[in-house]
Design a binder for these strands. Structure first.
Lengths: 126, 126
DNA sequence: TTTCGTTATATTTTTATTAGAATAACTATA
DNA sequence: TATAGTTATTCTAATAAAAATATAACGAAA
């Protein structure tokens, strides 16, 4: 019966993903690409995020397969071991994705405030 | 090099979820509530969806805890074993959720068409 | 030609999620 | 009072997802 004091308030979370037959692009790949752009390295990027290299590699591979174009142009070997950079298409995709997401988010927040503000006022389970 | 013939086209998928500290409401609970409304039974509803009763029960319980109000008013026993119906708050939540979702979806589709139509024209991996 | 740090890839191990089983409680009716 | 079919709850087993590991290849520079 005691009212919970410092409970996190209810808030919306919107996720934008792209599918073909399978999921192929979403927040995970997006942030990974951003980190790769930052580091010029899949390995450093995945480490940054706390994602295993194999998973990073897998989701990029899957994305490329389903999108039909390459996201990374990578080279291997050399003194620094190699590296990876985003293709133009990846940049374009990423930019569009983030922008689209942002607009949706804004729209979502206003809709949420409009339609669900009654919830926090409502009482009392058990 | 062979072009994939009948590949599913790329399309967006938008997911609206509600969180407090943890995820507490989303598409899963929504459809479950709709099925419960249809069947007046958690068991029948979960069977319909192909979800285990225990999971159905768990996600509803978690939702109620986090939302701060009850979603189901259920009775047990009797000739028919009992049943469950949606509370008014659940109805309200569900309606608002679906409406909000629909509006976002519409917005999303137009944004997608606007920003990502270039993708299908683009060529050719490996 | 050896070294280094990366990409690339497959395989194995670990973890998290989900389903399933088991059990108790409930109550209108036969 | 025995039955039936549900809710409610916990525990275990199966499955899926992710991480970790292992290897090979690469190529610039020492």
């Amino acid at each position: 019966m005691a009212e919970n004091k410092d409970k996190a308030k209810l808030h919306p979370k919107l996720t934008l993903q792209f599918f073909t037959d399978e999921k192929c692009f979403g927040p995970g790949v997006a942030i990974l690409l951003e980190k790769i752009k930052e580091n010029n390295s899949i390995r450093k990027a995945s480490f940054d995020i706390g994602m295993s290299y194999s998973k990073a590699w897998t989701i990029i591979k899957r994305a490329e397969k389903n999108l039909g174009f390459k996201l990374l142009s990578s080279k291997t070997g050399g003194v620094d071991g190699g590296g990876a950079t985003l293709t133009e298409n990846a940049e374009r995709l990423l930019n569009s994705y983030r922008q689209c997401e942002q607009e949706l988010l804004k729209y979502c927040d206003s809709k949420f405030a409009e339609n669900f503000s009654w919830i926090d006022n409502i009482s009392v389970l058990e």
